[in-house]
């Protein structure tokens, strides 16, 4: 069985925040286009109802994804983040917002810090997907666990993050607790039951 997957990231996808273009003072965008050439053999894709692990069943050039990642400072302590993504795969094509939230970051008055997010966002959970549009700077595609988080754990709601940073007093560690209230989410775990890990 020969399976070749060639992915060419044209630009942006492997960029970091510093590569973002400043469109106005305090407002940046990061534009990414990820195209690839697929030559696949084996079982047809799970998107066709089969047991193949890959996203595509047919050979040829594909648009993996395109995105516009916007970050803006609306006020000193109020930041906005919106990500618009476009897909075209065997499931169909789609353009949609994957993230859109406001974050209030009040200036700390003690070693305890508060952050409040409102909107659609991923939980602050991944050390891997730290690049623009919640993508990984280390790999061409998301890991299994991040794929699951992206599909099922992304919430629409509010998240309060409280962190205590004794590092300011010279310590090594910081402690953080995140509490979120959300709605409109599938029961997390259903996808694992359907597709496996």
């Amino acid at each position: 069985m020969v399976r070749i997957l060639i992915v060419v990231a044209l630009f942006g996808a492997a960029g970091v925040a510093a590569n973002a273009v400043e469109i106005a003072p305090g407002h940046t965008t990061d534009i990414g286009l990820d195209v690839g050439y697929i030559d696949v053999s084996g079982y047809p894709s799970w998107t066709d109802g089969s047991v193949g692990k890959l996203r595509y069943s047919d050979d040829g050039f594909v648009l993996n994804r395109a995105f516009v990642d916007y970050r803006g400072r609306w006020a000193d302590s109020l930041h906005a983040h919106v990500v618009l993504e476009g897909y075209d795969d065997d499931i169909g094509s789609a353009i949609d917002f994957t993230q859109a939230y406001l974050e209030w970051r009040p200036v700390p008055r003690s070693a305890t810090r508060y952050r409040l997010k409102l909107g659609a966002f991923y939980p602050r959970i991944s050390l891997e997907n730290v690049d623009a549009s919640w993508s990984s700077p280390y790999a061409a595609s998301s890991s299994a666990i991040n794929t699951w988080i992206a599909e099922e754990i992304r919430t629409f709601g509010a998240e309060l993050s409280i962190s205590r940073r004794p590092a300011t007093l010279g310590g090594l560690h910081a402690f953080s607790a995140d509490v979120a209230a959300f709605r409109g989410n599938d029961p997390a775990g259903a996808l694992l039951a359907w597709k496996g890990w």
């Binding site: 990642d69 602050r124 959970i125 891997e128 997907n129 730290v130 690049d131 590092a167």
Partner: peptide, 15 residues
């Protein structure tokens, strides 16, 4: 221990 800018700068996904 001395301050290590790298270790305290560990970034959780903010994207």
């Amino acid at each position: 221990p001395p301050h290590d800018a790298q270790s305290t700068a560990v970034k959780w996904s903010e994207y």
